[in-house]
Amino acid sequence: MDFGSKPSLIGPLLCLAVPLFTACETTHYEYSPPHSDQGRICVTQCAGVRETCRNTEMQRAQWEKSGCEHRQETTYHACMARADTKDETRACAKKRGSCWANEDTSRCENDYRECFVTCGGHIRTYIE
């Protein structure tokens, strides 16, 4: 779900900018579910917790963006109220920035993997 946020380009840019100093890695996971019915029910509960965590993080990012937009508008209107000349009016408009926030669901995914294993599942990690 996208709330007007911009995707982070920091990782890919660092991979391009600093190839001599660091290696860029991609991690993939292969999930093997538990064999027991109880383990599979447990994993289903883990997935529900992960989805709640993701939704909370997306909502946090949306609130952060909305808060930024509100602060930007308040600052802009205060500036315009003080502006006496066209140059000052243009300066107010130039100060307007854009607002965005990225959701970070990495904690949700880490917690899910830990829960998955606790339920009896196995995860193979592949780093490329």
Rank of each mutant, 00 (worst) to 15 (best):
A93H: 13
Q45S: 12
K95M: 05
C115M: 10
A23L: 07
C46W: 03
H70I: 10
C53H: 08
P33G: 07
Y29V: 14
D84Y: 05
S106Y: 08
H70N: 12
D87H: 10
M80W: 08
Y31I: 08
R60S: 00
R40F: 10
I10L: 15
I127S: 05
K86L: 14
G48A: 13
C42D: 08
R60C: 01
Q45I: 04
H35M: 06
L16M: 12
F116M: 07
A81M: 08
I127C: 03
S98H: 11
K6G: 02
W63E: 14
Y126E: 15
E25G: 09
S36K: 10
A17G: 03
S36E: 09
N102H: 06
R90M: 14
A61N: 01
F116A: 05
Y31N: 06
L14A: 13
C115D: 05
R40C: 10
L13V: 11
N102R: 09
R82K: 15
M1R: 09
C92S: 06
G11W: 09
W63K: 11
Y112L: 11
S36H: 06
N110A: 15
H122W: 00
M1N: 03
H77I: 04
Q45A: 12
Y29I: 09
S106K: 08
R107Q: 13
M80D: 05
K86Q: 13
P19A: 12
L9Q: 08
H122G: 02
E103I: 01
Y76N: 07
C92V: 03
Q72E: 15
S106E: 08
C42R: 10
R82T: 08
E103T: 04
T125L: 10
Y126Q: 10
T26R: 14
G4C: 07
Q59I: 03
N110W: 02
T44I: 06
E73N: 11
F3T: 01
M1A: 12
A78C: 00
I123N: 04
Y126S: 09
G67W: 03
E64H: 07
T75C: 04
G4F: 01
D37K: 14
S5D: 12
E51F: 06
M80V: 14
K95V: 01
H70V: 07
